[in-house]
Simulated assay, not measured.
Amino acid sequence: MDVVELPRRLTEEERDELFAGEDDPFEMAALTMPPDRRKDRYIVVRDHGRLIAAVGLLVADVEVGSAAFPVVGFGGVIVSHTHRGRGVFRRAMEPALATAERLGPDFAVLFCLRKNAPLYARLGFATIDAPVTAAGVAMPIDSMWRPLEPHAQWPAGPVTVPGPMF
């Protein structure tokens, strides 16, 4: 397996390859979600040239209480259903976290289904207990943060993502 950073968005063909025929690969079709922001770069995993996992990254501003600051937003995290349960998630996330640490912000933030929160918790993410909104829509899924700098602590208060979610 090869892990590569793409300094660009995924093409439609690459997304189709990742989804491998799944109609709702993120399992969010039944939820009312805010619009999704396009990612600036992706960490991808290929197996024999075939795209099997991807983690999207971008730097975006958030507001917590009266403070505004940038975070590295993780989004579009997916392992093709044909490769789940084989350690590919960690293989994609660890280099994505290393890339996030180089981008500058003190925090990484992501949104996930509750059933996936334990996977992210094993990588140091913690649940944000305050209400979170993105583009004016209350997030119907878990919101999680992780320090990217030693001793960084997530501030208390409601979280607002001024634009689309990650």
Results as ranks from 00 to 15, higher is better:
A92V: 00
P164K: 09
E149D: 10
G75V: 06
R9A: 15
R50H: 12
F125Y: 13
G21K: 08
A117L: 11
H48F: 08
R9F: 07
P131G: 08
E22W: 07
V132D: 10
F89E: 01
G21C: 11
L113T: 00
A29W: 05
G136H: 11
A135L: 11
R46T: 05
S143L: 05
G76I: 03
K39A: 15
K39I: 05
T11I: 10
A108Y: 00
P150C: 07
G21R: 06
G65F: 04
I128E: 01
V77T: 00
L31D: 08
D2N: 14
P158V: 10
T133L: 10
N116Y: 12
V4D: 00
A54Y: 00
R114W: 08
V72Y: 01
A67Q: 15
G65E: 07
A117Y: 05
M33W: 14
A134S: 15
P118W: 12
P70E: 09
R84V: 09
R90C: 01
A29V: 11
Q153R: 15
E27P: 00
A60E: 13
L57I: 02
D61I: 06
T32M: 13
V64L: 04
P70Q: 07
M93R: 01
D16H: 11
R50L: 12
G85W: 04
A98Y: 05
F166L: 06
G124T: 09
V71Y: 00
V77S: 02
L58G: 04
P25N: 06
A134I: 15
T32N: 14
A98F: 05
P34M: 13
S143R: 07
E17A: 14
P35Y: 10
R146I: 05
F74C: 02
A92P: 03
R86P: 03
C112P: 02
K115S: 12
G85Q: 03
R90H: 06
E149C: 12
E12I: 07
V72G: 02
V88W: 02
D36H: 13
D61N: 14
A30G: 08
L31N: 08
G136S: 14
P70S: 09
A117V: 11
D61T: 12
R91M: 12
D40E: 15
R84Q: 13
M139Y: 09
K39S: 10
P105L: 09
Q153M: 12
A68P: 02
A117M: 08
M139S: 14
F26E: 07
L113N: 06
L10C: 06
G85A: 02
E94H: 05
L148C: 05
T160D: 14
V161Q: 10
R84H: 06
A96I: 01
A138Q: 13
R46Y: 03
W145H: 15
I128P: 01
V137R: 14
R9E: 15
L6G: 00
E22I: 03
D36Y: 13
R86N: 07
V77G: 02
V88P: 01
P7H: 04
G163T: 08
R102V: 07
E5Q: 08
L97I: 07
T133C: 11
A156Q: 13
W154I: 03
